[in-house]
Design a protein around this nucleic acid. Structure first.
Lengths: 113, 113
DNA sequence: AGGTCGTTTCTATAATTCTAGAAATGTATG
DNA sequence: CATACATTTCTAGAATTATAGAAACGACCT
C-alpha cells in the first residue's frame, strides 16, 4: 500500500533537525493576519532562511537546512515554493492527514489485544 | 510535549525492516480466538523467531531482528516479554495512541493555512 | 551590466546506523 | 547433567546519512 509512503514520512520526521523544522512550520501555520476589511487570512509560510534562523539558532549553515528541506519535500511532508527571491516553506496538510489516518487505524487495530 | 518521544518513535518506524515488524505485529494483533465457552480472547503475540521468520522470509538472521526489536522497544513502540523459552512481541497500544493523538493535533493545526 | 542576497548543488568528511557471523546466556527437555 | 533450542550480546565491517564549506545559480536592485 502506501506503507512505503508512511515509512518515508516517518523516516523524515525521525531526524531531530527535521522534526524541529516541521514543528516550526506547524507553529507558523497557526499565525493569522486580519486584513483591513476585517477578514482573516493565513500568513505566508516562512522562508528557507527564516527556517534556518529559527532551527539552527541564527547560525548560517543554510546548506544543511536546504538539505533537510529537500528531504522533507521528497517525503511529501513539506512544500517549498519559489516566491521571488525567497523560498516559501509550508507543511503539506494532506501528508499530515495521511499520517493521522494511518495511526488512527493502527490505534483501533491495536485495540483488540 | 513529548516531542522527543514522538521523534524517537518516528525514527524507529523509519527503518523498512522495523516498519515491517510493526506491520506484522499489528496484523497478529487482530487475530482472535474463540474459547470453549464462546468468549473471545486475543491470541498471544508472536515470538521473536516468528517475527524474524515472517519479516526476513525465513532467513535465520536472528541477531538483526533482535537488534531491531530492541530499537522498537527503546522507542516504546513494542513490548517484548519473556514467556518460557520464547520472547513474546506485542505492539504497545499506548504508543500508537500517542502517535495518533500527535498527528491528529498536527492535522487540525495545519488546517488553518 | 555589476553587485548583493537567498538558496541550492557539489564535495569531502564525520557520524550514525544496519547487517550478520560468532560466542554467550538462559531455558526447557531427554 | 547434557543437549538442543530461542534469543541476546559482541564484534567488525558495510552502507547510509548528516554536516558544513565552497562554488554556482537565479532574482532583485541601481
Amino acid at each position: 500500500m502506501d506503507h512505503k509512503e508512511i515509512a518515508a514520512m516517518c523516516k523524515a520526521l525521525g531526524d531531530p533537525t527535521r522534526a524541529r523544522i516541521v514543528q516550526f512550520l506547524l507553529d507558523c501555520c497557526c499565525e493569522v493576519e486580519v486584513g483591513e476589511g476585517g477578514e482573516v487570512r493565513s500568513t505566508e509560510g516562512p522562508t528557507a532562511g527564516q527556517v534556518c534562523c529559527h532551527v539552527t539558532g541564527s547560525e548560517t549553515v543554510t546548506s544543511t537546512i536546504s538539505f533537510h528541506l529537500k528531504e522533507l519535500r521528497n517525503a511529501g511532508l513539506v512544500s517549498v515554493e519559489k516566491r521571488g527571491k525567497y523560498m516559501e516553506c509550508k507543511i503539506n496538510r494532506d501528508a499530515v492527514a495521511k499520517l493521522a489516518d494511518f495511526f488512527n487505524d493502527a490505534k483501533t487495530r491495536s485495540g483488540c489485544c
